[in-house]
């Protein structure tokens, strides 16, 4: 099958000061099949949000390619780019800041259709239809964002991402700002919509439980680099990159018996800003299994099993 989205050697550097560069996304390649959910995990500052923005062409890339359904996204401009935007949408982390506080929900939902000239004259009808789909009714059209709870507003955020009948959605930490009891509602909604409408998601999250639940495949990002990518079961069942292993070991399970008996698996140190990182593996400083070669040479992405790859010298 040809992938719906293909990212090839994508780089996104930000200049810092006179001579330094912050390598937010550093040579990332991945692909997503139509109807697939790719989870993207990593800690704050690993570049996962930037990657999502660059794929959507909301931020320019430094180099590399993003191919969406055969279209070279990064070369598009003006009208062509606007046209492509119908097909790729985004759901943000904080529902309150992702809505214009001075626009009613009705206006916010009609806006994308008006910009794209879709459902002309029937914008409101379509908005109500989508609101119903996400579990709300048409009575909210005249309300303002501040009148809703976070969970309700995030549902509306999902409805907005569907206004243009898009088939690819970047969900950027869409449940991390929500209360625990609301998270599960919204996650179920994401899953239902994906199955019903055969949507393709790039689902960004720092929460491994969330990612495991929603994803078909998972990519782990560390300091702008892809550390490991594998089908969900393999990644959680047989993590191969030491970073993935540490990440999984650090997860706290809601089970006191398990937690109290668990030996401390905390790894040292913290992710630092990837400003002019030294050569070699980005995880070298914190890696419990580091070897001499890791300090001098970047590990290549190695295939470990079917669709399972990791960037680690242990497996090279």
């Amino acid at each position: 099958m040809t992938p719906l989205l293909e990212v090839r050697n994508l780089h996104k550097y930000y200049p810092v000061g006179r001579n330094s560069r912050l390598k937010a996304v550093d040579d990332v390649s991945l692909s997503i099949q139509p109807g697939e959910v790719l989870g993207l995990v990593g800690e704050s500052g690993c570049g996962k949000t930037t990657l999502g923005r660059v794929i959507l062409s909301l931020q320019p890339a430094t180099s590399g390619e993003v191919v969406f359904d055969g279209i070279d996204v990064l070369s598009l401009q003006g009208k062509d780019l606007r046209r492509l935007r119908r097909r790729m949408q985004i759901v943000f982390q904080d529902p309150y800041s992702s809505f214009n506080p001075r626009m009613t929900i009705g206006a916010a939902l009609s806006f994308p259709m008006k910009v794209q000239g879709m459902h002309r004259g029937n914008e409101e009808e379509r908005a109500v239809e989508l609101l119903n789909r996400v579990g709300l009714d048409g009575s909210v059209l005249n309300r303002y964002p501040h009148e809703f709870s976070g969970g309700q507003l995030q549902r509306i955020g999902i409805a907005r991402a569907l206004t243009l009948d898009s088939d690819f959605i970047v969900a950027d930490e869409p449940v991390s700002a929500l209360d625990v009891s609301i998270q599960s509602q919204v996650l179920n909604l994401f899953k239902d919509l994906q199955e019903e409408l055969n949507l393709t998601y790039l689902f960004i999250s720092h929460d491994l439980g969330v990612v495991e639940f929603i994803s078909d495949r998972v990519a782990v990002l560390y300091m702008g680099r892809l550390a490991e990518i594998a089908p969900t079961e393999d990644l959680f069942g047989d993590p191969r990159h030491p970073y993935t292993q540490s990440l999984l070991a650090a997860v706290l399970h809601p089970d006191p018996t398990l937690e109290k008996s668990k030996p401390s698996m905390a790894i040292e140190g913290e992710i630092s800003t990837p400003i002019d990182p030294p050569p070699g593996c980005r995880f070298y400083g914190r890696c419990p299994k580091r070897m001499d070669i890791c300090r001098v040479q970047d590990p290549p992405m190695v295939s470990i099993g079917p669709r399972h790859s990791a960037a680690c010298w242990l497996h090279a």
Partner: peptide, 18 residues
């Protein structure tokens, strides 16, 4: 309602309402 590692659920049990 918590998504747990290794649970492999198709749907999360959820607490309805706000």
């Amino acid at each position: 309602s918590l998504p747990r590692l290794g649970a492999k659920l198709r749907r999360l049990a959820s607490l309805e309402g706000q």
